[in-house]
């Protein structure tokens, strides 16, 4: 049946949402949150200690940026499914 294959394709397209079970999602979310919290703390500590900490802070901001982009926003999913 054409309909089932379409259904499958529809599911495929939205896997990033429908794929993983809840428990796994919660684990990932928690881990990322802890990582973000730690990174923020370190950021803050550096800023307190160092005068004009432009360079040391950049990698932390970048890391946080990437973490959110990848684990909260599923960025790679948009690249993975290119054209048809």
């Amino acid at each position: 049946m054409a309909d089932t294959s379409e259904r499958q394709r529809f599911d495929e397209l939205t896997t990033e949402i429908h794929g993983r079970p809840l428990g796994q999602r919660l684990r990932i979310g928690l881990l990322v949150m802890v990582a973000l919290a730690v990174l923020t703390l370190v950021e803050y500590a550096i800023a307190v200690e160092v005068e004009h900490p432009l360079l040391p802070l950049l990698p932390f901001a970048a890391l946080k940026f990437v973490l959110i982009l990848e684990y909260f926003m599923h960025f790679s999913a948009v690249l993975g499914k290119g054209d048809h």
């Binding site: 949402i17 802070l57 946080k64």
Partner: peptide, 28 residues
Amino acid sequence: SWPVEGVVKYWHFVDLMWVIIYPALYLF
């Protein structure tokens, strides 16, 4: 669940901007 996903993505985006704005304004 697309509307939820969309709004949540947007919310994360706002957070993402804060990741840059926070050090840019307060820490540097």
